[in-house]
Structure formats: structure tokens, C-alpha cells
Design a protein around this nucleic acid. Structure first.
Lengths: 225, 225
DNA sequence: CGACTGAATCGTACGGTGTACGAGAACGTG
DNA sequence: CACGTTCTCGTACACCGTACGATTCAGTCG
């Protein structure tokens, strides 16, 4: 009987460079994940089905299950691939620049792949996210945050970025949706006068607000010198 | 031909008190939403299907579609029902108490219904959320935040609460999951030494961290007196 | 060379899903 | 009674994730 690699997939036990009968390159975890990300980017979360994914790879649907345990794992892998982080070659001297760089890179990645923001809350932390957390933890610690305050600091910053990106991502839907939301809002302007007046949903400087709030948090969380 | 109320459902045009043939009470938007919330609470997001929802109401699956356009609308309605907010009868004299009350109520509601935190990022803002935003906007404005800074302030606070609750919600999965995460982490302790040492995933005081970060933001965003 | 083996592919089938369609029941009003 | 409106729901269709087992392929050994 065939043995399925559930816990740790084999990942090309040998470089069997031979093409499959149908002429395409052989299946591999990497190709599957890449195709999944592409499908998610173009079709959204609901657009990813195992059959479509297999089609995109010119493979049978069930072939995927040799490399992957189930669909959830595809999501996990795609999420992790998209959220991978490699710090810049030369680290900045100021700890703050490193933190901000990582957080803005994270935010940018999620905005580049809008499905990721909606998916992240439902999935466990993958290696990419743990790596970012580790970096954040180390940097803040080296910046002088006491151990007792470290967890609070990490989560405060983390939560802020998470919330900012998710909120932001939920607002750059299609222009139609935005226009519809705006129409609904001014229709009920008597019920929501303040947010209608401030054009909260339309004119907000998302990036500026993000930076300002982040600065505020970092100022408050790290020891003053 | 039957006219479907897509935009504005009729909501009991008349109180047709008659019971259906099967003996149960008649269907209504309210009953559907209540049943949906109950199903979501007990079975989770994937546990809600139109057929199951109809079963719970002793109705045929397709009967739901008279009251509701599609399944997404069910999600929207359930979300909005769960996130409704009515401010306390007597408002506090301090603006800050009002803001904190609303935000903590929001957070509590999402933690009471964990599916809501995972759902919110994918759905548009419903009336309940707009109401909360309006309240926040008015209160901050009355607290002295200049119009130019208002949107930044609103979103900063908003994002923070959103992120904190979503993150928190994604971590109170089953004890098994948490233990597994911890095991995976200490297995790779050499790769994540800092977050392993601080027991970041286990010992964090979520509520304390939430309050502290929120205070920091409110301090920074509102004019000092 | 043939026999064997394990890795990898994939066709079929099953139980589930959301919902389009249209037949009918229940009801208020003439 | 008939008629229109409101509401219920059975059937059907396309699609989904995936269990199962047959099949193909690459490589090794005798």
C-alpha cells in the first residue's frame, strides 16, 4: 500500500527530473504553493478549490493529496509563503528602524495579498509569523524593555498592526462597493452625522494614521532615555 | 410571480399569527438570525449551513431564501446582531469612560462569539459597527480632538481594539491546540529562543496588555490638559 | 533482460454544499 | 366563491473536499 507522508512530506526524495506523462513538470510542494498563491491573488479565498488548483497545475485533483494533507494545509502553506520575512542585509543601527521595517513589510505583504488578512486570524501561527515575533521580541528586549513588560509590548504592537491592516484591507474592495457604502452612509446621514461629516470611510490617510499610532505605541512602550 | 424582497425585506408585513402546517411558529428574520447565532456559537463557522439552519427552525431549506438573499446575508445579520451596542442608561461624565466602555463591550462581544472575530475582516461594516464608530467619533470630538486629527485618532483606537481581539480570539482555541503549539515551539527553541523564554504564547496577560495599550493610545491621541 | 518496489498520479464515487426554479399552500380582500 | 399576495418547500444542478484503490513511472536488484 502507498504510504502517505502526513507529518513530514518527502519533498522530492530524489530529483526525479522526468516530466509526467502529460508533458508538464512534475508536481511539488513548491509549485503547488505558488499556484495556490496565484489563484488566491486572482480569484480570492472562495476561488481556491482543489480541482481548480490541480487544473492550474495540469494535474489531477487527487494528485495534490500526495503532497498535501488537506485543503487547510494549502491555506497554511500559502499564508506562510506570503508572510515570509527576511530582514534587510544591513541592519539599521537604531532598533526602532528595524522594528518599523519588519512591521511595515508585514503590513505591505498583507495588503498585497488581501486574502491573507482575512485568513490569518483563523489559522495557527506559522513559521514566518513566529520568526517575525521572535525578531520583534529580541529587538524590543535589546532596546531596553524589561522582561516583565516585554509581552505587553510585543502584543500591543502586534495587535495594532494586525488591526490596522485588517481594517484597511476590508476597505479597499472594489470601487463599486466603496461607492455603495458611501451612498448608504449619506442616506443615513442623520443617523451617522459625525462619521459622515468627517468622511471617515473615504478621506482617511491610512498610511499616515498607521505610522502615527505606531509611533505613539512605541514611544509609550519603550523606556524613555 | 413571487416578488423577492432583496433590498429591503418585508419584516412581517402583517402579523400573520398563524402557525405553519408543521406546527412550529412562522419563520421570520428575527428567528432566523437568532438560530444562526446559536448555530455559530455551538458549531463554529463551518457548522452553519442553510440546511442545518432550516432544520433548527423546522423549516425547509429553501424557505429561508424568502427572508434572506443568500448565505452571506445570514452572516452579515448574525454579525450585526451580535455586535449591536446600546450605551449605558446614564452616561459617565468623563468622556474616557464612555469610550472605554464601548470598546470593552465590543471586545467582550467578540470574545463571547469567537466566530465573529474571524468573520468581521471579510464583511462590510454593518449598522452596529457604524453606530459604534459614530459614537467614538462624537465622543472624541467632544473630548477636544481637532477635526484634522479626528480620523487618525478614530482609526488608531479602532485598529488597536480590532487587532487585540482578533489575536486574542485566535489563541483561545482548544487546550490541545495550545499545548501542541507550545510543544512545537519548545521543539524549535533554538530557532525562537526569545519568545520561548518569555512564554509569549502562554503566559500573556491579554486583558492587562489590552488596557495598557489602549490607555497609551488614548493618552497620546487626545489633547493634554 | 525481467521482477520487484516504492513514489507518485489520478479516475471514480460519496456525501455534502449553496441556490435556481417553479409548484403549491395559506391568507386577506373583493 | 375567486383572486392576488405572501410565504413554504421539493426537486435538481453544479460544485465542493476527499476516501479508496487502480495505475503508471523510475529506479534497483538478481
Amino acid at each position: 500500500m502507498p504510504a502517505k507522508p502526513s507529518g513530514a512530506p518527502p519533498r522530492r526524495s530524489r530529483s526525479t527530473g522526468a516530466a509526467t506523462a502529460s508533458g508538464g513538470p512534475p508536481l511539488s510542494l513548491e509549485r503547488i504553493v505558488a499556484a495556490a498563491v496565484e489563484l488566491l491573488d486572482t480569484q480570492g479565498v472562495d476561488g481556491l478549490s482543489m480541482r481548480r488548483l490541480a487544473d492550474q497545475l495540469s494535474a489531477g485533483a487527487m494528485s495534490l493529496y500526495w503532497h498535501v494533507g488537506n485543503k487547510e494545509e494549502v491555506f497554511d502553506l500559502a499564508l506562510d509563503a506570503v508572510l515570509a520575512y527576511s530582514p534587510p542585509a544591513v541592519e539599521a543601527r537604531e532598533w526602532r528602524a528595524n522594528v518599523v521595517h519588519m512591521l511595515e513589510d508585514w503590513r505591505a505583504a498583507m495588503l498585497r495579498h488581501p486574502w491573507s488578512a482575512a485568513l490569518l486570524p483563523r489559522r495557527a501561527l506559522g513559521p514566518s509569523m513566529l520568526g517575525r515575533l521572535e525578531l520583534l521580541s529580541q529587538t524590543l528586549s535589546r532596546a531596553g524593555v524589561a522582561d516583565a513588560d516585554l509581552n505587553v509590548a510585543i502584543w500591543s504592537v502586534w495587535n495594532y498592526v494586525m488591526g490596522a491592516t485588517i481594517t484597511r484591507g476590508s476597505f479597499d474592495r472594489s470601487a463599486d462597493d466603496l461607492a455603495a457604502a458611501q451612498r448608504r452612509l449619506t442616506e443615513r446621514a442623520e443617523r451617522y452625522p459625525s462619521i459622515d461629516r468627517s468622511r471617515l470611510l473615504l478621506d482617511s490617510d491610512w498610511d499616515g494614521a498607521f505610522r502615527k499610532g505606531l509611533d505613539l505605541l512605541l514611544d509609550g512602550l519603550t523606556p524613555k532615555r
